[in-house]
């Protein structure tokens, strides 16, 4: 099966083409375009996915499914990837499979040791999740100040790992390979995909107005 993998939950703008072997679940990355720029998600994602497709020598109409990281991630950039995935799925009449972006980082990091994945949530907090040595997610995704997170001997990966420990490791961002591996079992089951719902983990900042301010007797 031919998959397009997208993620905009971190400063990386990621788009890649993947061949997924439906019997073995093996993932073969055919092409990938990545730019690290937290302000360019809306600009670059579609050019990247078109470039990746042409490098891989495939037309978008050949795709069998889209795989999209749904965060957690800073809101504005995250939505670029998600609305792109939803619109492609609509236009190409193919399913779009959501993947927790932290699961994609964990899948790229591989199994064998417990993992703690951390990405930057801004405001001095991190988005994080913890994985057992076999890759099962045991805690998270959640958003917390670094001081509240118990690393507990896990290997720390992800772009905000340095906020937790000096020995943070690659990978920093969700990769095409990681996204495809994290989604592989859902894709191969060919079931109805879960809805593409972003993992915001935070409520919008908005204050309800208080009492009306008086305008008279204000010195100007």
């Amino acid at each position: 099966m031919l998959l397009l993998a997208l993620d905009t939950s971190t400063p990386a703008v990621t788009a890649g083409l993947v061949a997924l072997d439906e019997t073995s679940g093996a993932v073969d990355v055919l092409a990938e375009r990545v730019t690290i720029n937290p302000r360019a998600h809306g600009e670059l994602l579609t050019p990247h996915l078109k470039d990746a497709a042409s490098t891989a020598g495939v037309a978008l109409s050949d795709l069998d499914a889209v795989v999209c990281g749904i965060g957690p991630g800073p809101f504005t950039g995250l939505r670029a990837g998600m609305v792109t995935a939803a619109s492609l799925a609509h236009a190409l009449d193919i399913p779009a499979y959501p993947v927790c972006s932290l699961d994609a980082i964990a899948a790229e990091a591989g199994t064998g040791t417990p993992l703690l994945v951390a990405t930057d949530a801004r405001r001095r907090e991190v988005y994080w999740a913890r994985y057992a040595a076999d890759g099962t997610r045991e805690a998270g995704p959640a958003v917390s100040p670094p001081a509240d997170i118990d690393i507990g001997g896990a290997r720390v990966v992800g772009q905000a790992g340095a906020m937790l420990t000096d020995t943070a490791n690659e990978p920093s961002y969700p990769t095409t390979n990681g996204l495809a591996r994290a989604a592989a079992s859902s894709v191969m089951a060919r079931g109805e995909p879960e809805p593409l719902t972003p993992l915001y983990l935070r409520r919008p900042d908005a204050a309800e107005p208080g009492e009306r301010k008086r305008v008279t007797e204000v010195s100007r």
Partner: peptide, 20 residues
């Protein structure tokens, strides 16, 4: 609004790319 515009622009690009 920047964040609001981004959603429509990203969707429109995806539709245009997919439909060529």
């Amino acid at each position: 609004l920047a964040g609001a515009l981004l959603v429509g622009v990203a969707a429109a690009k995806a539709y245009a790319a997919a439909l060529d």
